[in-house]
Computed example of a mutant assay.
Amino acid sequence: MSNDILVVDDSAVVRKVARRILEKHGFAVREAEDGEKALAACRAAMPRAVLLDRNMPVLDGIGFLRALRADHGPDEPIVVMCTTEAAMERIMEGLEAGAQEYVMKPFDEAILLDKLAQVGLLPA
């Protein structure tokens, strides 16, 4: 199974930090700065997983997730939503839209790797 992750975030800094962590652990990383570009990237070549920002211009994370799940079903790819919003209803909205897990920003390497292990992308 491929080990590629699409990192979707409107912040170039967040994409760079995530890329550095993920590539260090053997993932092939592609990037998109909004949900519309992320959908196009998934349609071109489905990644194994998506690290998805919730709040972005053009098409936000929830809109992207709903479109992705409508196109490809509930299980593929694995989606880990990133958010700065700790409110439970915002987290639940992401999970109900089809994310398998979420991670709070700012995240560090240990937190991100733990979440990837929880969804089966890394050994526990």
Rank of each mutant, 00 (worst) to 15 (best):
N3F: 12
N3I: 01
D4Y: 01
V7K: 07
V8F: 08
D9K: 01
S11D: 11
S11E: 14
V14E: 04
V14T: 12
V14Y: 03
R15A: 02
K16S: 15
K16V: 03
R19S: 13
R20S: 15
I21T: 06
E23G: 10
H25E: 02
G26N: 12
G26A: 14
A28T: 14
R30F: 00
A32K: 00
A32N: 10
D34A: 07
D34F: 01
G35Q: 05
E36W: 01
E36F: 01
K37W: 00
K37M: 13
A41D: 10
R43W: 06
A44Y: 12
A44I: 11
A45G: 14
P47T: 04
P47W: 04
P47R: 11
A49Q: 02
A49Y: 01
L51C: 00
R54D: 03
N55Q: 08
N55P: 00
M56F: 08
P57H: 13
V58P: 00
V58C: 01
I62R: 08
G63P: 02
F64I: 02
L65V: 09
L68H: 05
L68D: 09
R69I: 06
R69W: 00
A70Q: 09
A70K: 11
G73C: 11
P74R: 05
E76C: 09
I78S: 08
I78Y: 06
V79N: 04
V80D: 01
M81W: 01
M81S: 08
M81N: 05
T83P: 00
T83V: 04
T84V: 09
T84Y: 01
T84P: 00
E85K: 06
E85L: 13
A86K: 13
A86S: 15
M88S: 14
M88W: 13
E89A: 06
R90Y: 02
I91L: 12
I91T: 03
I91M: 04
M92D: 14
E93G: 07
E93P: 14
L95F: 03
L95D: 07
E96N: 12
A97M: 08
Q100W: 04
Q100R: 15
Q100H: 09
V103K: 03
M104R: 10
F107C: 03
F107E: 05
F107A: 03
D108W: 04
D108L: 05
E109A: 11
I111E: 10
L113I: 12
D114R: 14
K115M: 05
A117E: 09
Q118A: 13
V119Q: 05
G120Y: 12
G120A: 06
L122P: 14
